[in-house]
Amino acid sequence: MSYYEEDDLSRFADMGKHRPDLFEKFMAWYQACQEDGALSRREKALIGLAVAHALQCPYCIDAYAQSCLESGSNMEQMTEAIHMASALRGGAALIHGLQAHNSVNKVSM
């Protein structure tokens, strides 16, 4: 058994078993976020895909890869979104290099 099981994605509703009130509130909010608004469903799916990669959540990656396809995105667009997430993660790591520099500089002559 793996820590991550593909079928668990379709069992997400099981998280409502013990505190259904909280789960229902979450689902209402989550689903409202997906609807067309100032951003289209497709744009939101691409954001979701990028965030899923930043979080490195395999369930979210699977779900949002499908959502992107089913909202009409192609692999080129999805890959650009993934690069955006990766670039931000890389940039976020790199800018923390200044923390290291600062730390070193503080104790250096």
Partner: peptide
């Protein structure tokens, strides 16, 4: 037609 095992997007958008 979807090029694979997924549903089509919203018709008006695509």
């Amino acid at each position: 037609n979807p090029v694979g095992a997924f549903l089509p997007p919203a018709q008006s958008a695509i």
